[in-house]
């Protein structure tokens, strides 16, 4: 209810505004800070160090020592946690495989929904489009735990026709991911469609291209960079997801988030740290890929570039 109300307020506030870009966006407003500049920069770096660098370093440090509380020095340092995680614990590979499959399936599968949806939302204005927009955003605004409970309640009973229960299989996690990340997947594609000059499609229509033809030749190539960003974004978030899968996992369907949580919970903080460090490296690699894509993307697609 609260999510829906918030989304309604947002729609009202933006009602009737068409944010299609016509010209170039202006230069960013900047002002000189004068002699405060040094002080502020130091402060900012300090905050960054505190919230970002310190926890990361702690993570790396604890992954290099045999147990929690052991001080890190030349005698205690070892990569055994990484060796254990990578080569001995079968759970790691299972979790890694599960998370990668789930994240790729969610990212690519959602694209087949969000590209047509974004097209319809930009071309057809009206009450129905607004309703669809809200429906898409609700699961994203919901806490993952709430969503997971909803999915358990829905899919605990066997499916009507086929008589199979999704509960306890990897499919229920995938279904919940679809629901949860629909909005994440939609946003870059929707921005790309919104910022596209409608005349580009109209010119293709007058050139004689029917719907599928112009989709293939004109629209899809133009939204392709945004679709790429959408895939990576969903992948990035889904690969690290915990709250949804925490309730939906069962033996053999652990995700990376669940695996780290379980390792830490069972006292193997060194293994948990090592796995976390590996995940961080994965995330950084993906963000670098997005950064590389960024120059082809509409502005505002990447959450960290604005």
């Amino acid at each position: 209810m609260i999510s829906a109300a918030g989304l309604l307020v947002q729609q009202r506030a933006l009602a009737g505004r068409d944010y299609r870009l016509i010209g170039h966006s202006g230069a960013r407003a900047a002002f000189s800070l004068g002699r405060w500049r040094i002080a502020l920069e130091v402060l900012l770096w300090a905050v960054l160090a505190l919230v970002l660098a310190a926890p990361l370093l702690a993570l790396v440090a604890s992954s290099l020592v045999p147990a929690y509380g052991v001080p890190l020095n030349f005698n205690t340092i070892s990569l055994s946690a990484y060796a254990e995680i990578l080569f001995r614990q079968s759970i790691t590979l299972t979790a890694l495989k599960n998370s990668l499959i789930l994240a790729s399936a969610a990212a690519l599968g959602l694209l087949t929904v969000t590209v047509p949806a974004a097209y319809l939302l930009t071309r057809r204005k009206g009450a129905l489009a607004n309703l669809i927009a809200i429906l898409i955003e609700i699961p994203y605004a919901l806490p993952g735990i709430v969503l997971a409970v909803a999915f358990i309640l829905t899919f605990a009973a066997p499916l009507p026709v086929v008589g199979l229960s999704l509960y306890g299989t990897i499919w229920i996690i995938l279904a919940a991911y679809f629901s949860s990340f629909l909005a994440v997947s939609l946003k870059p594609v929707l921005s790309a469609f919104l910022q596209m000059d409608p005349a580009l499609e109209e010119a293709a229509r007058l050139a004689g291209a029917g719907f599928f033809r112009r989709m293939r030749d004109v629209l899809l190539p133009l939204v392709a960079p945004a679709a790429g960003a959408s895939v990576i974004l969903v992948f990035l978030i889904a690969a690290n997801e915990l709250t949804v899968s925490a309730l939906l996992w069962s033996a053999g369907t652990q995700t990376l988030g669940v695996a780290i949580f379980n390792l830490d919970d069972s006292g193997s903080s060194d293994l948990a740290s090592a796995l976390s460090v590996l995940v961080v490296i994965l995330v950084i690699a993906l963000m670098a890929a997005l950064e590389y894509l960024a120059k082809h993307l509409p502005e505002g697609v990447l959450p960290w570039r604005n």
């Binding site: 000059d197 580009l200 109209e202 010119a203 007058l206 050139a207």
Partner: peptide, 12 residues
């Protein structure tokens, strides 16, 4: 056929 004010050339 139409010539648009924004040219509407396909950038790709």
């Amino acid at each position: 056929a139409m010539v648009f004010q924004s040219y509407a050339l396909w950038p790709h």
